[in-house]
Design a protein around this nucleic acid. Structure first.
Lengths: 343, 343
DNA sequence: AGATTTAATGCATACGAATGCGTAAAATAA
DNA sequence: TTATTTTACGCATTCGTATGCATTAAATCT
């Protein structure tokens, strides 16, 4: 059996409550006793029994991370682990554990958020799932458990008021387009995606804004849609090869579609960057495998994860942090070969 | 406040113990009471307080999954999520939650396995981390908490006796080589990797065995080493271009190295499969992006994950399952283009 | 019917830590 | 020195569930 506060109390000749207070660094304990108790605890490798603690203090020191059931293409899969890693690391640094779970149990059809909530297994939620439904949000809001969206912009972000931190997608679209424009491109194709989250729409908005700010015209004929996969990027080009006549550059709203598009162009004898410039979005590792190495928009995963955790824990500790907050981090452009070499 | 067994007891006019027994489906309760209590519980959306339950019953219904600190190249990252998903799904099906954690806290330098163990936060461990040290294994063995290795073969698998389930790496190497041999190839290059886990060594053994069984000679000059990355596969070819004279086929022990190798070959004017046949290992999605589509060895992730969980829960439930078990699942060959088309 | 076994339920306590409240000891003030 | 405040600790209870044991009610046997 593991050692308990009661055991330590006996050894230190104090009461169990005193031990508890020492270990929690209560100010009402003398330095002498504190030192004595802490020493004994250390020597015996004492660890709190998490459940006794949670039961009594109503805090679990664990955070629920809600994962997407399915990811949206290869790109999601590839980034997924770094997102998760950063979240875990940030939370572990703050001495929290993380329970990962899908939004619902595929077998029992139970809502895992509700279940974890009712069972009191977590102190709060980080939601990496863009497809969360309105009802679950409502449930979360009705309890006072803190939760925050990370990375994915919830589809209802315009109408609902929730905490979230993500990259500034608008700005990402803007800097991608701006880079192309600054290189002299005037007729740019944009490959977006219909998607549950709001990010692709925002990238498109950023793209449009950059055109506008540079006095370039925009019309919907410049806008094409894939489904985020390599194949869809490939297919968009194949299906619209004649539309390419007027175009000197392409902004593909994720790297996979960009790479698929490059491949399709290559098969049609069109070279990147010589004939057409290309910029992607995400900065996946694959960008550095096949030439031309892709110029793309990089998302600062680590910072976003850290900020998400920081904010969540803040909400956890101060009961009166009810104001919602939208935190957007600026992405950066990483310039490689696919727009030509000129700095 | 959430509803408790005591509340239900009051409503049903029975004692709290009776409620507890009903909800746990104890055989010593009459059907009538059971039905009555269950109905009330259902109507009020009762959920056990996990901590009270764990404290009292000494069971947490949560499993710790130990993740690798770093993954080994892109390939690991790509597969990672499907492994994790399958594990979570399997465990949720059995009504277990999962706490994910690294082997050690990067900041406090605490051993997370020991910590979770001492805090009683988990009932058992699934270890996806190949780099676990001997000391931690010893600690785990000394407690009676069940644990099992999944996917990665621990480096000490030859000397230590632990439960694990993974793909039959030997067989994977064997079927890859056998496929090439059956197509008439006699001089085959093998690109392996020096790696912390045991899998690459086993793939090499399988490769050798296939040669032997087909009365083909083997010598160490056929064996080359990358580090599992695309770049390393590329580099192996670049550095040994003259060795290719004698060769008609290559077995690269993972897809990334295979694709890197194909790229390097292409740059030297050597085409796959026309000039050289290639077979990889892993079946990552990237295999279907660029031609030639890679023939490769597929690992049955879902089955392995499911078996891992099943076995762990079995160990959890029967205290006398002390015999260690090594469970190896056969991989399958998925034939695409990189070995030529002939069936 | 009376005795005995069996089934169904309640009582009381344990699990381990947190915490409000009371109190003794120490420090300060009068 | 005595009165008063402050500091440091202990006592007792609580959190919600599980479970051994006692008890009552029902069923079976003689």
């Amino acid at each position: 059996m593991a050692i308990t506060t009661k055991d330590i109390a006996k050894m230190a000749n104090v009461s169990q409550s005193t031990v508890s207070r020492c270990l929690n660094d209560s100010p009402m304990i003398s330095e002498k006793t504190k030192k004595k108790v802490l020493k004994i605890a250390q020597e015996h490798g004492f660890q709190f029994n998490a459940h006794a603690r949670s039961l009594s203090a109503n805090r679990t020191y664990t955070i629920g991370v809600i994962l997407p059931k399915s990811l949206f293409g290869f790109e999601g899969e590839m980034h997924f682990r770094s997102w998760q890693n950063e979240l875990i690391e940030s939370l572990e640094q703050m001495e929290f554990d993380v329970i990962v779970s899908f939004f619902e149990n595929r077998f029992t059809k139970q809502n895992n958020i509700q279940r974890l909530l009712a069972a009191k297994k977590v102190d709060g939620f980080i939601i990496l799932e863009p497809a969360l439904d309105d009802e679950t949000i409502t449930i979360l809001e009705q309890t006072d458990i803190p939760f925050i969206f990370c990375k994915y912009i919830p589809p209802f972000y315009k109408t609902r008021d929730v905490d979230f931190v993500c990259v500034d997608q608008f700005k990402g679209g803007y800097i991608a387009a701006d880079h192309l424009i600054k290189q002299g491109h005037k007729r740019i194709m944009c490959i977006s995606a219909n998607h549950i989250g709001g990010e692709f729409g925002l990238r498109t908005e950023g793209f449009k804004a950059a055109l506008r700010d540079n006095n370039l015209p925009y019309n919907d004929k410049m806008l094409f849609y894939g489904d985020t996969t390599f194949q869809s990027g490939y297919q968009v080009i194949k299906d619209n090869i004649e539309a390419l006549r007027d175009i000197t550059a392409i902004f593909a709203q994720n790297d996979l579609m960009a790479l698929g598009a490059i491949q399709a162009l290559k098969e049609s004898g069109i070279n990147v960057p010589e004939d057409i410039a290309m910029v992607g979005f995400d900065d996946i590792e694959l960008c550095t495998f096949y030439q031309p190495y892709l110029t793309t928009v990089h998302q600062p995963t680590k910072e976003i994860a850290a900020l998400t955790c920081k904010r969540l824990i803040e909400k956890l500790n101060s009961t009166e942090l009810t104001l919602k907050q939208k935190l957007e981090i600026s992405p950066t452009l990483v310039i490689r070969e696919s727009c030509g070499i000129n700095l």
